[in-house]
Amino acid sequence: MDALIPDTDVVRTAVDLACRAPSVHNSQPWQWRYDAGRLDLYADPTRLLVAADPRGRQLLISCGAALHHLTVAMTSLRWRTHVRLLPDPLAPRLVASVTFSRDARPQSHDFDLLAAIRRRRTDRTPFEPLPVNPLLPELLRTAAGTDATLTVLGEDTRPALAAATEMSSAVRRYDASYQAELHWWAGHGFDTEGIPDTALASRAERERVPVGRAFPDSHAVVSAEPGPSDQSTVMLLSTPGDSPTDWIRCGEAMSAVTLEATVQRLATCPLTHLTDIERSRDTIRALAPGAGVPQLLLRVGTSTHPAPLNITPRRPVAQVLTFG
């Protein structure tokens, strides 16, 4: 064992936690390689959603979220991470190279964030409002420590957000490739990937969430009674530009905010699709002038579920991590 670099067991544990990060359609579009103290994160082009994400923007947001999850895990394991984004212009698939030093001093909140990695779920059902306490300022402070801007969109923006949602859905409604891709990833019983039926909203629930992606209806749970419409707080994550680096940074910020929200016992649902269609992106941009380039929306609120949502599947670490 070399005390100056993490051993393989530490790296395996951290990557396992990193791969709990949210990714578009739970596609988990990443590969990791560890050698001589350096951990490389690669984008996996075989998991690119060609119809939904032709530019690879959502893929790199997903990789950024996994990268931030990794730093949280390694901090709790008492290793400080040193990250270089897109370090090799000749290797565009190489998202980041990470090295480590043995000088991390985790605080109690770092262990709260570590526990949140296991507890966090993407909840596509309607939310109750945020409780009246300092939780919202805490989320804003979390985002302030990233390279993205978090903007809280007020109630008066709901009609415009609903219009952007409908606009995005209308563009995709008769896109056969998009619909085939969506139905492949969502609602199936895959053991290691995709969105299981139990993680989708029922038709009644989906109709009460005016700002969301139009996934297939869940048949696992049927709402007995119609309930109130979604009362979540909608937030916007923006970046200074619209480059691959910005996309990765946005993913890191999304991870930071969703983990902090999970620590605070809040429900979250990231939405990356509304900013892929230029017209809906322009609508959202007008709601937060000066905030930068809109990258994703985040619904945050109080869950209406009496018990935690089921865990969604993940690929075994052996499939995504190699050594040597």
Rank of each mutant, 00 (worst) to 15 (best):
L298V: 08
I195A: 02
E205L: 10
T312R: 09
T262S: 10
L200G: 03
F215V: 04
L271M: 15
P289E: 00
F215N: 10
A204I: 12
W247V: 10
R203N: 02
T198E: 15
S218M: 08
L266A: 13
Q231H: 14
R206N: 07
R285K: 10
P270S: 02
H188N: 14
R203P: 00
E205R: 13
T245W: 06
D282K: 09
S232F: 07
P244F: 11
D191T: 13
R208A: 15
A180M: 10
H305V: 09
P210E: 08
V209T: 10
A288D: 06
S303Y: 07
I195T: 11
A307N: 03
D230T: 03
T302D: 10
T302S: 14
R249Q: 15
I248R: 05
S243D: 13
T192V: 14
T192D: 14
E205D: 15
H188M: 09
A261D: 07
P306R: 11
L271V: 14
W185R: 05
A201F: 11
E193M: 09
L237H: 02
R281W: 07
D276I: 05
G227V: 10
R285L: 02
W185Q: 00
R206S: 15
D197K: 04
I248C: 03
I284F: 04
R285D: 12
E278F: 03
D242L: 03
R203F: 11
T283K: 02
D276P: 08
A307Y: 12
R203M: 13
A253L: 05
G290C: 14
A307E: 15
N310Y: 04
D282H: 14
E260D: 12
L296F: 04
D217F: 15
D276G: 03
Q231L: 14
E207T: 13
G194C: 04
S232W: 04
R208I: 08
G194L: 11
A267W: 05
S218P: 11
I195S: 01
R203Q: 12
I284L: 03
P313N: 07
L298N: 00
D217R: 00
A201V: 12
S218V: 09
G187P: 11
R213A: 13
A224V: 13
A204Y: 07
L200I: 07
S223N: 12
I248K: 05
A261C: 12
L271C: 12
P289K: 06
L296I: 08
E181V: 10
A186I: 02
P313I: 06
P210K: 05
H305Y: 12
G301L: 06
R279W: 06
P216E: 08
H219C: 01
L287P: 01
L309R: 08
D282L: 08
D217H: 15
L266W: 03
F215T: 00
S202D: 14
